[in-house]
Amino acid sequence: MVESEDLQSLKTIALLGGCRGPIRLSSQSLGKELGISPQTASRRLIALERQQFIVRSMKPDGQYVAVSRGGEQALKREYADYVRIFNPEQRRYVLAGTVISGLGEGRYYMSLPHYKERFGEYLGFEPFPGTLNIRLDTASIEVRKHLDHAGWIEVPGFTADERTFGGARVLPCRIGGQKCAIVEPSRTHYPEDIVEVIAGCELRKVLDLNDNDMIEVEIAHD
């Protein structure tokens, strides 16, 4: 969990433009913005850098600071919490993690005609034969625990060729602007840190993703 003092400092850096790129920022100027001493501000910067929430560099004209991808994710999670507090009718969740390789089972199931038809009917797109596997970071594992009432759609199972195929539940979401859905087969117990995502396209190719790339899944629930 991010300490409140660190989050306050991170937010201030972002408001000064740190999410758009490196900004010139000294301990004195940050301290003035926060109403704290330069020494305390320096400790805050060190703490943020240690947590990989900011990137610092020294140039001839002074220190430059930029909010990192991890820092942006921390701010987005804080934003999602405030949305849930002040606008509970429109809840927005963000899951963050890294892309990993799966076992190939998703490709088989997403290629079955009945599953393709059912998912197309419930989600509005015919899934690409394969899934994108994501290992969630620690904070997102906690966010995931709040998703049980986030708008899951139950997709029933079916029987074909004397074989029974289980149902699943899907949760519409977006990755990089691409419409997709988290899928959880009813017969499979997934580790709490892994999610599988289906989409109407090959997300790895469309978004140029490789294993270990950082990624965010945005979920909005009316």
Rank of each mutant, 00 (worst) to 15 (best):
L132D: 00
E218Y: 06
E192G: 01
P156N: 14
H146A: 13
Y82H: 11
K76Q: 14
V206G: 00
L48E: 07
D148M: 03
L75I: 10
L112Q: 13
H221L: 04
D61M: 13
Q8A: 12
A150L: 05
G176K: 08
H146E: 15
A14E: 11
F125W: 14
G18S: 02
L16I: 05
A139Y: 01
S186F: 05
R187I: 06
C201P: 01
G102Y: 14
R44E: 05
I134E: 10
I219P: 00
M1D: 04
V195I: 15
G177K: 08
E3R: 06
Y64P: 02
S68D: 09
E216D: 06
K59G: 12
E5R: 13
F53N: 09
E89C: 01
D61F: 13
G200N: 12
G18A: 02
Q73F: 03
R92S: 14
C173G: 01
I100T: 09
F119Q: 03
D161M: 09
E184W: 00
S186Q: 11
L132C: 02
L209P: 03
L209Q: 04
G177T: 10
T159D: 11
T40E: 15
P113G: 12
G177S: 12
P191Y: 13
T40S: 14
T188K: 12
R204M: 13
V155P: 00
G177M: 09
R56E: 15
A66T: 09
D81F: 05
Y93N: 10
L123F: 08
G35V: 07
E78C: 01
L95F: 02
A168V: 07
L16C: 04
E49P: 01
G71I: 08
G151F: 06
N210D: 10
Q63L: 15
I215P: 00
D148P: 00
H221C: 14
V217C: 08
K11L: 13
L112R: 11
P156G: 10
Y190K: 03
Q8P: 03
V2P: 03
P156Y: 13
E5T: 15
A220H: 02
P129N: 15
F119P: 01
L75Q: 09
Q8G: 06
H189D: 12
Q63G: 02
G17T: 08
D213P: 01
E72T: 04
A80M: 12
A66V: 10
G31A: 01
S68C: 02
V197H: 04
I134A: 04
N212F: 09
S140L: 07
G120D: 04
Y109A: 01
M110C: 07
S186E: 15
E126P: 00
G120A: 08
Y122I: 07
R77G: 13
A14G: 00
D211H: 11
V65Q: 04
G157S: 07
Q51F: 00
D137G: 00
R44F: 07
N87E: 04
D161C: 02
G70C: 05
P60L: 14
Y108P: 00
F128D: 01
V143F: 04
G18T: 06
V197W: 06
A220F: 05
A66I: 06
I85D: 10
Y109W: 13
V94I: 13
K116G: 02
E184A: 04
I182K: 07
S42V: 08
R163N: 09
Y122K: 15
R144D: 11
C173A: 14
L30C: 03
A160F: 02
G157I: 05
S140F: 02
L209N: 05
R91G: 07
L147D: 12
S140Q: 08
L15F: 03
I219S: 05
G21N: 12
